[in-house]
Design a protein around this nucleic acid. Structure first.
Lengths: 223, 223, 223, 223
DNA sequence: CATGAATGAGGATTCATTCAT
DNA sequence: TATGAATGAATCCTCATTCAT
């Protein structure tokens, strides 16, 4: 988020209003992400978004075309960020099971730290993925995480510490499911079951349950 | 629909208007469940619900007070149904691990068969459980499933086939998470990863992965 | 216009709000006719129309669906009126040429008296008949005037006072063109040519020119 | 477009910017004519005009002051063109009736070929000639056609082939009305009466009807 | 001359809810 | 209980025009 701003004040060889426009767009995008995450596509109000930005409602239409265009831009931005962040993951040197545990903890922590993103995915699923399906740049995003998991599985199978029949995509789904639920469904789950899911202790405990679950799942029966 | 009518006018010793009113309420509730599940609380339209109903918009206000009242009634009805259905589960005679596997498969199948309920839970989480928190009858619903799991865990621990430190609520969360994701996030996941999640084969495979994951998680290390 | 009102206060055996609703619709229609005729479809403002009616903007949407729906209703109403009015024309007893002259004068007078209708037709032509083409009830309106002209031509031909090769539709087009121009183009024509087209004298003179032109056109060369 | 550029930069002794400015003005004017003719003054969009232009929106404001200024310029340009074109008409040598027929055919053909102009006149009449009235250069444009008609009538009267009481302006109005209708009202007329007005055959037939009508109108009764 | 960005006032439309009968 | 009509406060969006560079 801050990158654009930093770059703008630094580089400055480019056309005049460009840096400003970028800042305006980024600003709108930030607020819109929060609003759409908080209230959904239908629940969010263009007026409220505009009010919270540094510019006017009119600029939302100028830069993003409308409510749907803004929502699409928010989706694109959020999905884009994961790719970027995933790239920072370095699992190279670790033994397979340790790498896997690290990946699970990373996923858990990322989702906990990015509730907005989780909620946007929920919102998009309420809309039956109607918008991401129409965004070619998001289809087959080919998240690096799948490749990482494939590498781990292959190395682990070679070393005999991971069952050879574990499917990377299926494994990713399990990890995602376990981590996602903790953020997405925490509100109803904690009310219905009267349990705490927000404290650091609860989160840590849950995270380790998930790590354990994943490791036990991939390990060969006799390992 | 017609069944309700038949039953109502047949079995009833009560004043005629009462059965009618019941039928009207049930009818509205069914349509509203579909609409709220399909479009969320903000996205659903009172006019559309009324139009699909056998009665008029006025009746929604008469019986449920308004949009929020109707939404609350829908939540109450859906959560109530789980309790009812859970009661039909008979795991008594089975050995612990078999009972657990059965419970997981039941949970998976129920969620697949009741997408509307899953989506309503998503919707409610988007609203940060604002409505279920205000419904005393839903708080501490004490779902029977927790008791079932506790029984399984205890019997399993006694028999040495389940680790003694498995927490029933934590286990329920894992099962729920794995099953829920399959319905809730199927739209985005299948688009992003270009995988099929809707075919019977895909569902069955996924279900067995989940069973496996849960069983491996609870079994003692050397079992 | 007044019919609905009259009937409503007279008949009164029907459901309660119906007469009122009719009056509301009629009122909106009247104002809308004026506004669309005065400023065109794009130029007219829903707010202004609403302000001039006895009800609110919301009612326009309730009864007519929107700006286009209202415009369509206005077109339907105006075209419908001609049919009705044409039916009052009684040319039966007159000799062909006299009947024709009468019809021309009637057309001229009707158009002069109904400038709004003329302007709506202009507006619709600016829109390339986009709306009337989509109104099945207006296509092949089968205006009675064509039948009247056909009758006149046939009788006239039989009596030898009208050329046998005059086509009724072509003749109608000529009459329409001559009358229409007088209302439709009066503003630019009178400015460009500095002539009066609004005085009663000017209108009468013009009307007789048109009658003359039409009669001379249909008469056999040697008649 | 490119021709203009070539010619401008080639033949010109003038300051280079001037030719450019001319080119820009002409380009804007052409596009604006199309847009105003297509959608009317209210319906046309400055943004759309600018987009279709080779330059930017700013230039419209620079050269024409705004939407109304541009519309005025378009009117001036179109009316100016008729005068120019009318001047090419040479009826001198022909006998009066032949000259008249020629003039009618010319008028008809010009209007068919210049639909944009016809539509602009319609648009201006929708605005009750509000703009042409305020353009001194258009008032009393003294179209040459009136003079031509006066000449024809006088010669014809002298020769006894045209009634002496035919008024040139009135005759012009009749010719205009008959020709104008064919272009202006073709959309509604062809829909309502289910007739073809666009084919070459239909146009030719209609043109000859008009010629006939005009000639019969001016000829002395016994001619 | 040229361009992208910005603006405020206006304009069409929708929504949950209530009223009259 | 039932129904069509009515309402006002939003809500999304568009337009002609101007500014900064």
């Amino acid at each position: 988020m801050d990158d654009a701003k930093t770059m703008a004040s630094a580089g400055a060889q480019r056309p005049p209003g460009e840096a400003d426009a970028d800042r305006v767009r980024t600003n709108i995008l930030e607020i819109a992400t929060e609003e759409f995450a908080a209230k959904g596509l239908t629940g969010a109000r263009i007026d409220e978004i505009a009010e919270r930005t540094l510019t006017s409602k009119r600029m939302i239409y100028y830069h993003f075309g409308g409510k749907e265009g803004l929502y699409r831009a928010v989706l694109a931005h959020c999905y884009g960020r994961i790719r970027t962040i995933e790239s920072t993951l370095d699992l190279g040197g670790r033994p397979p099971l340790e790498a896997l545990a690290h990946l699970v903890r990373f996923t858990f922590d990322y989702q906990v730290a990015n509730e907005d993103f989780i909620r946007l995915v929920m919102v998009e699923n309420i809309h039956r993925a109607e918008y991401v399906s129409q965004m070619p740049e998001l289809q087959a995003l080919n998240l690096k995480v799948i490749e990482l998991l494939r590498g781990i599985c292959e190395r682990g199978a070679a070393e005999g510490v991971i069952r050879p029949d574990v499917d990377p995509t299926d494994l990713h789904m399990s990890i995602s499911a376990l981590c996602f639920f903790n953020v997405a469904n925490r509100h109803t789950f904690s009310v219905i079951h009267e349990v705490d899911m927000m404290s650091i202790a609860a989160k840590t405990a849950r995270r380790e349950t998930i790590v354990e679950m994943v490791l036990r799942y991939v390990r060969p029966a006799a390992a």
